[in-house]
Amino acid sequence: MSKPKTGLLVESLELPETESSNDMWRGMAHVFVKAQKTTGRRLILHEYLAARLANYLGLPVPFGEISSIPEGREAWVSGITSRDGKVLPPTTYESMLENERYVLCGVIAFDQWIFNGDRHEDNFVWSEDIGLWAIDHELAFCGDRDGDECIDWLKECSTLPLNMSHLARKGITDEDLDDWSSRIRLHGVKYAERAIISARKRGLLSLATAKAYANFLRIRSANIRSLTKEALKGNTGSISPVSGMDQLF
Rank of each mutant, 00 (worst) to 15 (best):
A208G: 05
S21P: 13
L43W: 12
M245K: 15
E94G: 03
D146W: 12
G27L: 09
K37H: 14
K155R: 10
R218M: 15
S165G: 00
A214Q: 06
I219P: 08
V103H: 04
A51Q: 14
Y102C: 00
S182E: 15
A195M: 06
I69E: 02
L248D: 04
S68F: 13
L8R: 13
I172F: 03
S165L: 02
G131S: 07
E175Y: 05
V189H: 10
L43I: 15
K190N: 13
G244V: 00
A214N: 05
W25P: 07
Y48S: 09
L8E: 14
L167F: 12
H166V: 11
L53C: 06
G72K: 05
I196N: 08
D84Q: 10
E128S: 09
F115I: 14
W153C: 10
S243G: 10
K201L: 10
I219H: 04
G117H: 03
G85V: 03
A50L: 06
E128V: 13
I66N: 06
R220V: 04
R26V: 10
R26C: 01
N123T: 10
H120K: 04
E175K: 08
S78L: 01
G244K: 01
V61E: 01
G117A: 03
L88N: 04
L97N: 05
D122K: 13
N235L: 13
A50V: 12
G85T: 05
S181Q: 10
A51K: 14
T173V: 11
S206V: 07
G85S: 06
H120R: 01
P241I: 12
T92V: 06
R218K: 08
N55Q: 09
Y191F: 12
Y213Q: 02
K233A: 09
P90K: 02
F63R: 15
V31H: 14
N22S: 10
V103F: 01
K34I: 00
L177V: 11
R83P: 07
W133E: 00
R185H: 08
H187E: 11
A212L: 04
E74N: 09
L177C: 09
I172G: 03
D129G: 12
L204H: 04
L207M: 14
T6V: 12
T173S: 15
H46W: 12
T81I: 07
R42H: 13
A54Y: 04
S158Q: 14
I80E: 06
R225F: 06
A140R: 01
I44T: 06
E74F: 09
K5R: 05
P241R: 11
S82L: 07
Q112W: 00
R101N: 05
H120G: 04
G117T: 04
S82E: 06
L43D: 11
A50F: 11
E17S: 05
E14H: 06
R220I: 02
D152W: 07
G79P: 14
P4R: 10
Y93V: 01
S221W: 02
E121R: 05
I151E: 13
N163G: 00
S181M: 13
R101A: 01
L15H: 12
A192F: 00
P90H: 01
M28E: 14
R83F: 00
T159Y: 05
T38C: 09
E47C: 09
